[in-house]
């Protein structure tokens, strides 16, 4: 089991922005003893795409009314 824990460890150099240093620092403290710890760290360093928010707002504001006539009814 100890050998498994060792493999879960990640060595990350503490250089870079304050944000990433804090994140990596907390990851070191957790030492990825459990898969959850690793996944929590993985999630914390995953950034949501900037375009996503804009895309959603655009879709929501441009969505036609649900009771609009279907395309096939307009044809026939």
């Amino acid at each position: 089991m100890n050998s498994q824990k060792k493999h879960l460890r990640q060595t990350v150099h503490p250089i870079g922005s304050q944000e990433i240093q804090e994140t990596l620092g907390s990851a070191k403290a957790l030492d990825f003893a459990t898969p959850e710890a690793l996944l929590q760290f993985d999630r914390s360093i995953t950034t949501t795409p900037v375009a996503l928010r804009h895309r959603i707002v655009e879709t929501l504001t441009q969505t036609p009314k649900s009771n609009s006539i279907p395309w096939w009814k307009r044809l026939f």
């Binding site: 150099h13 250089i15 922005s17 944000e19 360093i45 995953t46 950034t47 949501t48 795409p49």
Partner: peptide, 22 residues
């Protein structure tokens, strides 16, 4: 998505590898 963090190329690489392994 990891590369967007303001970190060094080495850190980016390590984070990328971690993401791929996960």
């Amino acid at each position: 998505q990891y590369a967007s963090l303001d970190s060094t190329p080495l850190q980016n690489l390590e984070l990328k590898e971690l993401g791929e392994r996960t």
